[in-house]
Amino acid sequence: APRKVEMRRDPVLGFGFVAGSEKPVVVRSVTPGGPSEGKLIPGDQIVMINDEPVSAAPRERVIDLVRSCKESILLTVIQP
């Protein structure tokens, strides 16, 4: 079942996760003590960023979407 995860941007750590460059977009790592800790799990597949589906989106679009979130971000993720 999809999970909705909302995180506030940390001034130092950002959102505190690293996503892979393949499709679908998969969470590779979560920064300890960062905003994503306890919310995202490595292996989570990101299916939506805010209200935009990203399963088939180019990597550049995913990066732009994350960067455009100055304060908070809403991710919809699934464990494949």
Rank of each mutant, 00 (worst) to 15 (best):
S29K: 10
E71P: 05
S29H: 07
I78V: 14
V18W: 04
I73G: 03
D10W: 03
I73K: 03
F17Y: 04
D10E: 05
M7P: 02
D44K: 00
P32D: 09
Q45T: 08
P80H: 06
V54Q: 02
S72L: 05
R67S: 13
V62Y: 05
V62A: 04
K39R: 12
D44G: 02
Q45L: 07
I63S: 15
S36W: 00
P58F: 04
R67D: 13
F15V: 01
G20E: 15
K70Y: 07
G14D: 13
C69R: 08
G20Y: 10
G14L: 02
E6V: 09
E60R: 11
D10A: 04
C69Y: 06
V27L: 03
E22Q: 12
V77K: 03
P32T: 12
S68V: 06
L75Y: 02
F15L: 05
V18L: 07
V77T: 05
T76D: 09
P58K: 12
V54W: 00
S29E: 14
P11L: 07
V26M: 13
R61M: 10
P35L: 01
E6T: 14
S68Q: 14
S29G: 10
S68P: 03
G20M: 10
I41R: 15
V25P: 13
M7F: 09
P80G: 09
P35M: 04
G14R: 03
V62P: 01
V27Q: 01
V18Q: 07
V62D: 01
G34P: 00
K70L: 04
N50P: 00
V30F: 03
P35H: 02
V27S: 00
I49K: 01
N50S: 06
E37L: 05
I49F: 03
D51E: 13
E37R: 05
T76V: 07
P80R: 07
E6L: 13
P58Q: 09
R3L: 05
D51S: 11
D51K: 11
V54A: 05
P11A: 07
I73Q: 03
E52G: 04
E22S: 07
A57C: 14
R61D: 13
Q45C: 08
V66S: 03
V77W: 00
V47M: 12
Q79G: 15
G43M: 06
E6C: 10
I41D: 10
R67C: 10
F17P: 01
T76E: 13
G43Q: 05
S21Q: 09
E71I: 05
E60D: 11
G38M: 06
V66W: 03
P24W: 00
M7D: 00
V12R: 13
V12G: 11
V5M: 06
E60F: 06
Q79N: 11
G14V: 02
P42H: 07
G20S: 14
D64C: 04
R28S: 13
D44M: 06
P35N: 05
P42G: 05
S36P: 01
R67H: 12
R28V: 09
D64M: 05
L75K: 04
S29Y: 06
V27F: 01
V66M: 14
E71W: 05
P42D: 10
S21I: 05
L13F: 11
R67M: 10
S68T: 11
R59N: 13
E6F: 15
D64H: 11
L65T: 08
D51T: 09
V62M: 04
T76F: 06
V47I: 15
D64V: 03
V5I: 10
R61F: 11
G34F: 02
D10K: 03
L40E: 00
P42Y: 05
G20F: 07
G34A: 06
D10T: 04
P2E: 15
G38L: 05
G34K: 00
E22H: 06
N50I: 02
K39C: 12
R3N: 04
V66T: 06
E52M: 12
G43S: 05
I78C: 12
P53C: 12
P2Q: 15
A19H: 12
G33C: 09
D64F: 04
V54R: 00
G20N: 09
M7W: 00
G38Y: 07
G20R: 08
A57T: 14
V25I: 08
D51L: 06
I78M: 15
P24D: 03
R8G: 11
T31E: 13
I49R: 01
V54Y: 01
P2D: 09
A19I: 15
V27H: 01
L65C: 06
R67K: 14
R59I: 11
S72N: 12
K23R: 12
P80Y: 04
S21D: 14
M7S: 03
P2S: 12
P58W: 03
L65D: 03
V27C: 04
M48R: 11
F17A: 01
P32R: 11
V27Y: 00
K23W: 09
D10Q: 04
E52S: 08
K39Y: 10
S68W: 05
F15P: 01
P80K: 07
V25K: 01
V18P: 00
L65H: 06
P32G: 08
E22I: 04
D51P: 01
I49W: 02
L74N: 12
S72W: 05
E22A: 09
V25H: 07
V12L: 14
E60N: 12
G38C: 06
E71S: 10
L40P: 00
S72K: 15
P58R: 10
M48A: 15
R28T: 14
I73V: 13
I41S: 15
G33T: 06
V66I: 13
V25L: 14
K70F: 05
V12F: 09
V62N: 02
N50G: 14
I73T: 06
G34D: 01
E71C: 07
G16Q: 01
I73M: 13
V77F: 02
L75M: 13
E52C: 10
I49T: 02
G14S: 05
P80F: 04
L74Y: 15
D51M: 09
T31L: 06
K39M: 11
I41G: 09
P24E: 03
L65P: 01
G33Q: 07
P24Y: 02
S55P: 12
P35Q: 04
R67F: 08
P42C: 11
R8Q: 15
E52W: 10
S72P: 04
T31Y: 08
P2G: 14
V54G: 00
V25C: 14
P11F: 04
I63V: 14
G20K: 09
E6K: 14
E52V: 14
S68K: 11
R61L: 10
P11Q: 07
D51W: 05
D44I: 00
G33W: 05
P32W: 05
S21H: 12
I78A: 15
